[in-house]
Write a protein that binds this DNA or RNA. Structure first.
Lengths: 133, 133
DNA sequence: TATAGGGCTTCCAGTAACTGGAAGCTCAAC
DNA sequence: GTTGAGCTTCCAGTTACTGGAAGCCCTATA
């Protein structure tokens, strides 16, 4: 199977698939003409990677998850730990973004947004009112 | 004023301040010994940048905001547009993360997390149930 | 006065995960 | 035989820094 078909079936760009080979996530065979020759298992692996990436797992996590997937003596606790850790990171990120969002939304609401220069957004950036106290 | 003091007062690492000079966000003077010589306005600018970055604005947005800040013939509409655009991007990002979070939390709850290999997380990554329909 | 230290300088490389593009080989079709 | 699509490799660029090396500068102390 050539790379284009694998790309279509796994949903990953050909560039990404080559990159994943580069960093050792997949090891397709090679045909005599030098073309990559993918097997079903390669497509399966790539689809797995695509889904893990879509859940936000890092490439490094993906490597771990893939290894666990292929190890049938794995302990599900190990998988769960990786996922929980990632979940915590997502929660942190969301909290961070929520905080930004709140401040920003507040500022945007306060700004007239007309042809005059007065702007609470810039004023806050230049010299924010002390928080708390 | 030397870089260390500016770093302390603006809250930005010295490395970052040098980087900001590199990309033209600040232009401190130079002392005869080659050391950067920062003025009050430089510190002010850097603090502005630090706050804009903390709100998640890109360096490019920061450049724009700084220019608007320094242009007293600006229209607040321009500033507001930049901020609203950024707000939209934050909202998108949050939505994305929320979706990930939901799927992931669901999978984590379903996983026993013991010493056995059976794992709904891996099963889902390997072969997810069709969505919708 | 010699030296030790800490602060400052520049420059290079690395990070994460790709993505774009150039140069060039291969293959199928007309 | 030639065209065009598909494949190959390799290099550079993206974002916003960050770490580290090599080396100058300044101050204080012995």
């Amino acid at each position: 199977m050539n790379i284009k078909e694998v790309s279509d079936r796994s949903g990953l760009p050909a560039k990404t698939i080559r990159y994943y080979e580069d960093i050792g996530l997949v090891r397709p065979l090679r045909a005599e003409n030098g073309y990559r020759a993918f097997r079903e298992q390669d497509v399966h692996k790539l689809a797995f990677l695509g889904r893990a990436r879509a859940l936000g797992f890092s490439i490094d996590d993906c490597r771990t998850l893939l290894a666990l997937y292929q190890d049938n003596r794995r302990e599900s606790a190990h998988v769960k730990a990786v996922a929980e850790d990632h979940l915590r990171q997502i929660d942190e990120k969301i909290a961070q973004l929520d905080a930004m969002r709140n401040t920003l939304a507040h500022l945007v609401r306060a700004c007239h947004g007309d042809d005059r220069p007065d702007c609470p957004i810039l004023e806050d950036l230049a010299d924010p009112p002390a928080r708390g106290s």
